[in-house]
Design a protein around this nucleic acid. Structure first.
Lengths: 229, 229
DNA sequence: CAGTGGTCTAGACCACTGA
DNA sequence: CAGTGGTCTAGACCACTGT
């Protein structure tokens, strides 16, 4: 037979879903499973490790592997670049710079990004359109102490997101999803009514422990983030 | 020396973030890396596989491993059971059943879950409180054709979520996140004003290709879902 | 302290895919 | 068709952690 790690993973997952190994029960140890499936322990190990990553089982040395009582449901959402998101839907992407201003970081931003006093930031307001209709309102702040070049960039044709990704490709981020009421400015740019409920994402990005940028993305009315798991 | 897969992964990631291997560039092949780090190819393989899962690099047979041009930003959100979510914050959890009704599946639900005509469903409205204050409004529909026992359960003390997790522990689901305006019912139960913007999650759950349940969770005003990546 | 998972190795064969 | 990643093996030692 020579089972693959996929076979082992699928079979064990089936035993769990069918209730043969109910939540809380202990699964046979790796050596036993290796004998059962007639494969190497490393093969079993990979299957089980993935099941643990998926939140299906819980593994502890000496204690063995147990089926989780409350499965840790985790959903993965992709956070694509807006342009890609829109173009992948087969719609036409258009970008526009609404406002660009160099200023001192306001208090709330300094607190949020742990900036020093008197830090200079670049504040950008941008719009992203899909097939001519408003899609996303971008309120971005860039730390000029860390990225002084940003001040010289003309963001008329390309959004700051794409420039940032090219400049600092890999970094850490914290993202929050929430709902907000449209104010006059949002309503006007997104073509909705004042007071409408809008979906919003906030992201703070860090590199080497220092804050690079904060962005608040507000989506057009009715926007959803969807995923399967 | 004897590098571990963590060492290899960290070192390669550093080389990428520092720009030594810029986006689009090709990384040395596994055998070469194994020589460089003085370890087995399997060790390098694991490091690279994880970097690929993390969306940092892209691997293809024969073509080699390349640093992604546009890093696939993916955020993982944990979707815990409400009770756990509340208790983990150190607050007191309280549950209440608001309404329970057996009925025919309305058209929108049938379409959504691909149910047959005349399917019976159990419709539940529940509230979840944190330290006595409204936390989440749960609007749940359970497919009675698949789970006839649900009709006999008294959901007065325990929420349907916990019963479902215990009954059908593992299943597939589709989840959507969105923003909605509070109607009169939501405003009353969640203690906010009509028209307030509220964060909402919708989840359809499937098992063996058949729809088990649909739930719409509405959070109290100001709720955020946050994660790091 | 003993048992279980965590990881590494050296070698092998396979599967996909670009030239 | 040849090169690169994908996976398996048999064996080994290590690192936690429950008893």
């Amino acid at each position: 037979m020579t089972a693959t790690y996929r076979d082992v993973k699928a079979d064990i997952l089936e035993k769990i879903t069918l209730g043969i190994w109910p939540p809380g029960s202990t699964i046979p140890k790796e050596i036993e499973l290796a004998e059962i499936y007639d494969c190497a322990r490393a093969t079993v190990n990979r299957a089980m490790r993935e099941l643990a990553e998926d939140g299906i089982v819980e593994r502890k040395r000496k204690a063995g592997t147990k089926v989780r009582m409350a499965p840790v449901r985790q959903a993965r959402f992709e956070i694509p670049i807006v342009r890609k998101e829109i173009e992948d839907k087969g719609t036409e992407y258009r970008y526009a710079l609404v406002r660009k201003e160099r200023q001192q970081a306001p208090d709330w931003l300094r607190a949020r990004l742990r900036l020093n006093d008197g830090g200079a930031v670049l504040h950008l307001i941008c719009m992203h359109y899909a097939d001519g209709a408003p899609y996303q309102y971008e309120d971005r702040w860039i730390n000029l102490d860390l990225l002084p070049n940003a001040a010289e960039i003309d963001f008329a044709d390309t959004g700051p997101n794409e420039w940032l990704v090219a400049t600092i490709p890999f970094s850490n981020a914290e993202i929050s999803l929430l709902a907000t009421m449209a104010d006059a400015e949002l309503a006007e740019h997104l073509g909705c009514s004042k007071g409408d409920a809008l979906f919003q994402a906030e992201r703070s990005t860090w590199w080497d422990g220092k804050a690079i940028t904060f962005v608040r993305l507000t989506f057009r009315k009715g926007h959803r983030m969807t995923t399967r798991y």
